[in-house]
């Protein structure tokens, strides 16, 4: 598979991306194009090359993928207009969808994002009716009574956590000193894995409902490393009024860290995403036996 570097954008903005074409283009007619968004400030290859590997796996099972840098990240230029950070990412994503629509005749899109990428994907799905699916890694999470109870129980019953307390405190102090030093020298910048203050829970709940009503398929994957989420059940606790039916799937990888630094966790994640996308969106070629190594139903 030959990947292709592409440049697009509106006005003076120049957004850089990589298109991984589907392995068998003849099978992809009518299938959505997958668009991968930046995880924090990391450029488009993703943490530990996650986006690259996932893009190639998805291409192998018949999906064209675009991974690109939002303006000001990676190789993309900075916007000079006076848009807010959210408006900028909305516009960049709209440019990406328009580009893939014009250049690859795509009519449907599935968004994929980790952390701030998940927040951007949430807004993108709401704003553009061409989005028919989205994968959110460590997206919005709101503490519930169940969350607080599990957290408390886990802290008081875990001998390991008590034993690790001095180490954690030391580490926290070192982090704080290192941050202070970084601020003084301005030589390094922390990756923004957090996405600021999330919208109110009830707003997000209504937005998810509107997406499912529109027929958008949603996959939420939370990691054990995401502060604020600690059980697969928490999603239903957060959004009790949502009719999950077959539109919303939630997974919780308790062992995994937020950015998936261990390969076995990344493999599990990739398998989960590929299976979900194949199940939901390979509908136009039901007779074909599409699978990649390690991805079996």
């Amino acid at each position: 598979m030959m990947e292709k570097a592409v440049v697009f954008g509106s006005g003076a903005v120049r957004l850089v991306g990589i298109v991984t074409p589907a392995a068998e283009p003849q099978t992809t007619a009518g299938r959505p194009v997958i668009i991968m968004l930046n995880a924090g400030l990391l450029h488009r290859v993703g943490p530990y090359r996650l986006h690259v590997h996932l893009a190639r796996e998805l291409a192998a099972i018949g999906f064209t993928v675009l991974r690109f840098d939002l303006s000001g990240i990676g190789d993309s230029t900075i916007r000079t207009d006076r848009l807010s950070e959210m408006e900028r990412s909305n516009q960049d994503l709209r440019d990406a969808i328009n580009f893939m629509s014009n250049s690859f005749q795509a009519t449907e899109f599935v968004l994929f994002g980790l952390c701030s990428g998940a927040a951007n994907a949430h807004r993108g799905a709401l704003l553009d009716a061409r989005v028919s699916g989205a994968v959110f890694l460590d997206g919005y999470a709101y503490p519930t009574s169940g969350y607080r109870l599990r957290r408390f129980a886990s802290h008081i019953t875990s001998a390991e956590k008590w034993a690790a307390l001095p180490r954690k405190l030391t580490r926290s102090l070192k982090h704080s000193l290192a941050n202070k030093q970084r601020q003084q020298t301005a030589s390094t910048i922390r990756l923004k894995y957090d996405f600021g203050t999330p919208p109110p829970r009830h707003q997000v709940e209504q937005e998810i409902k509107s997406l499912t009503k529109r027929g958008v398929n949603l996959l939420y994957i939370y990691s054990g490393g995401w502060e604020g989420y600690n059980h697969v059940k928490q999603f239903k606790e957060m959004y009790q009024s949502i009719d999950f039916s077959d539109r919303v799937q939630v997974e919780y990888f308790a062992q995994a860290e937020h950015t998936y630094p261990l390969r076995e966790d990344r493999k599990k994640l990739q398998r989960c995403v590929c299976l979900w996308i194949e199940e939901k969106f390979a509908r136009l070629s039901p007779t074909q036996n599409l699978h990649v190594e390690g991805v079996k139903k």
């Binding site: 400030l41 290192a178 970084r182 020298t185 301005a186 030589s187 390094t188 910048i189 894995y193 950015t259």
Partner: peptide
């Protein structure tokens, strides 16, 4: 140190 890895180098001086 692995826990310094969530910072990007941004050194105008260098």
């Amino acid at each position: 140190r692995y826990d310094q890895q969530d910072s990007l180098l941004f050194s105008s001086k260098a």
